[in-house]
């Protein structure tokens, strides 16, 4: 299962709910305002870093760039994908659960 999170962890509980309800080992894609959870130095970094150990965590590159986030700020273990990578994630997983 691929879980998509499109909300900033500082605005809504979408990320928390995703991390609570995504089965260990599943894939998580941070997109739109969800990308703010992918960088170091925030109050969300610890939980995201810990999630990146038990799950495959991805972040949508075009959404990062739009928001001025750079790859060298990324939490270890989080991989950057473009829209084609997003498509691959959808194809490679059995389904998609949106956390809006």
């Amino acid at each position: 299962m691929l879980h998509t999170v499109n909300k900033s962890p500082f605005e809504r509980n979408s990320l928390d709910s995703c991390l609570r309800l995504a089965k260990k080992g599943s894939a998580i894609l941070l997109m739109e305002d969800g990308v703010y959870a992918a960088v170091t130095g925030t109050t969300a970094t610890d939980k995201m870093a810990s999630a990146a150990k038990g799950n495959s965590v991805y972040v949508l590159g075009p959404d990062m760039s739009a928001r001025g986030l750079a790859e060298d700020q990324l939490i270890d273990g989080i991989k950057v994908v473009d829209y084609e990578g997003f498509v691959d994630l959808v194809a490679d997983n059995d389904g998609v659960t949106p956390w809006l």
């Binding site: 089965k23 998609v96 949106p98």
Partner: peptide, 14 residues
């Protein structure tokens, strides 16, 4: 509940 989500073919959120 994580198991239920995992075994779904389509998930419609809201």
């Amino acid at each position: 509940l994580a198991e239920v989500l995992e075994t779904s073919d389509a998930v419609i959120g809201g």
